[in-house]
Design a protein around this nucleic acid. Structure first.
Lengths: 214, 214
DNA sequence: TGGTCCGTGTCAACGCTGTTGGCATAACCT
DNA sequence: AGGTTATGCCAACAGCGTTGACACGGACCA
């Protein structure tokens, strides 16, 4: 007996096991032990299925989260949770990170984030702008880092090697700034830039809240 | 007579003129007045072709940029240029945004950004961290917004409709914060959140520069 | 108990996709 | 003139999402 939940879980497992290109209706049907067309009894199209997968990932990120009352710590926790949830399923994140689902888990996340901002004292127009920047920053970094993780191991290694093999060996006369910071770049670039970028965003947001008289 | 340059230019024109889903080998062949398979005389695969397109776009993005001496204005201009050039060609952006190429145009951009930060007075470790956050945030938003533009027209329309059809009609009792800001959300979400997020990043960076005694 | 729905999964087919190997032709060099 | 090479065409392959007709089984009602 099939169900929407079983199909979504199977699809996520399929993507995680064999890469993003493994998600085809025919392969999904095979993994379910059913005819491929049976999927269309539960989802109008593969795009519909993709939105369900995206919402499931959002839901997993929010699981067990509780507000503490410290708006900056709360937003930081939500951001890192979203990022981590997508990092756990990189191939699925590539396909799903940029979709607006309008489904229950996404709605709950939007309500929570807006609640944190408005309770903190941000005026509504500012709260919406910061919400927008915050969410898209989280999803943007999630998709970017997920794409790196989803590369074939050889290509992923090659991308990192570029910093040591190419940037670290440039002529200081031609590229003085790169040459002066090459050792710092090779150490910093393999890590995700998201936590630092998130802190910058929250710091600027706090400055604006103070300026608004919060 | 075909050539790699002619094929790349035709492909870019095809993408820009007839929407996201227009770039198929058969349509490209038709636009060239040649058999689709002729493309494979010049590119190993469509992925190879798309990388060639991406490389062409990097060159176009950097064309004509000059530093003004105002570090914050310079970084803002670079960020907006990167974002805009990827937005102009979404399909290529999706594939290229997360790759480290180490080629000349990319190297020149890294040198320019690091130069702006170090000349402004940022200490090297801070300059590298801000460079990392700045670049990955730009590429992350570029990929995110490009992915939206690259959706089939129907899915793209559906993504926008969600804010009016779904979020604007939620019960205020269940989702008070969304209900209170629904009109602001429907106005703000269709736009890119990147310019605002960029300003927040630059604002926080300036605060850290002042704190460091710059 | 018998008849009728309806939910569920199967099956065959359509038109599309990227990609390949063989064949013709035209240009070039010796 | 003869041979080599580059270039484009043609037909075909396997795979894709999607659809409509069909078969089975349980649920409901007379």
């Amino acid at each position: 007996m099939l169900s929407a939940e079983l199909i979504v879980d199977t699809a996520i497992r399929l993507i995680g096991g064999h890469g993003a290109e493994a998600l085809t209706v025919r392969r999904l049907g095979a993994a379910l032990g059913a005819d491929p067309s049976a999927v269309y009894r539960y989802f109008h199209s593969t795009d519909d299925l993709l939105l369900a997968i995206a919402d499931e990932l959002i839901g997993r990120a929010q699981q067990g989260w509780q507000p503490t009352g410290d708006w900056r710590a709360d937003l930081r926790a939500i951001g890192l949770r979203i990022h981590a949830s997508y990092q756990a399923h990189p191939q699925a994140a590539i396909l799903a990170a940029h979709r607006t689902t309008g489904r229950t888990h996404e709605v709950a996340a939007v309500e929570a984030i807006l609640g944190v901002l408005r309770t903190a004292g941000f005026p509504d127009p500012e709260a919406v702008r910061i919400y927008h920047a915050f969410v898209d920053q989280s999803l943007g970094f999630a998709a970017l880092d997920a794409a790196t993780l989803a590369l074939p191991a050889a290509a992923q290694h090659a991308d990192l090697q570029v910093w040591q093999a190419s940037y670290a060996r440039l002529d200081p006369a031609d590229h003085p700034h790169i040459a002066a910071t090459a050792h710092l770049l090779t150490a910093d670039m393999p890590r995700s830039g998201y936590p630092y970028a998130l802190d910058l965003l929250l710091e600027a947001a706090e400055a604006r809240l103070r300026a608004a008289g919060g």
